[in-house]
Amino acid sequence: MIRHIVLIKFKPDVSEETISDLFAELREIEKQVSGIRGITSGRSESPEKIERGYMHGFVVDFDDWDALERYQTHPDHKALGGKLVANAIGGIDGILVLDIPVAA
């Protein structure tokens, strides 16, 4: 399994409603790309308070690297990625992405 982790520093003027809409778009992609096991998204509620501005994020679990590639090349993912970049502080610099193999 591959765990795709995305952390986002949204611009201060981006509303929670807009962020929820973006995450809803992400969940629509789940229905279109085979090999997605699940998606979790939201705002950090960490008691440690060391988010360093990355207050929102999502995790997508994929069956394998091929499923991640199908997701990455899907046109809806590319469109959503553009919206995330447009709403992040510093554009792409306001987004962190990690892909970690996980023993199933």
Rank of each mutant, 00 (worst) to 15 (best):
E69P: 00
G90D: 04
E16S: 15
A67P: 07
R70T: 07
V85W: 01
G82E: 12
G38R: 04
D99V: 09
H74C: 11
L26D: 09
D66Q: 14
E17F: 08
L96I: 15
L26N: 06
H74L: 11
D99M: 04
T73H: 11
G57L: 02
L22I: 13
G94P: 09
L80N: 08
V14N: 06
V97K: 01
D93K: 14
L80K: 13
I36G: 06
N87Y: 05
E69N: 11
P101T: 10
S34R: 13
L80V: 11
A24C: 02
D66V: 13
E17D: 13
L26R: 11
E48C: 00
I95R: 01
K49E: 13
P75E: 10
I5K: 05
D13A: 07
G91A: 06
L26A: 03
I39P: 04
I89V: 15
V33C: 02
I89E: 15
V14I: 15
I39Q: 02
I95A: 01
G35F: 04
K83V: 11
R43F: 08
I29A: 02
L96Y: 03
P12Q: 07
I36P: 08
D76G: 01
P47H: 01
H56L: 08
Q32H: 10
M55S: 12
E25L: 12
K11C: 03
R52V: 04
K49G: 02
L68M: 14
Q32T: 10
L7P: 00
T40P: 00
R27E: 10
E28A: 08
K31C: 00
R27M: 03
S20I: 13
E51W: 01
V14S: 07
Y71W: 11
F10R: 12
K49A: 07
G90A: 09
V102K: 12
H4K: 09
A103V: 10
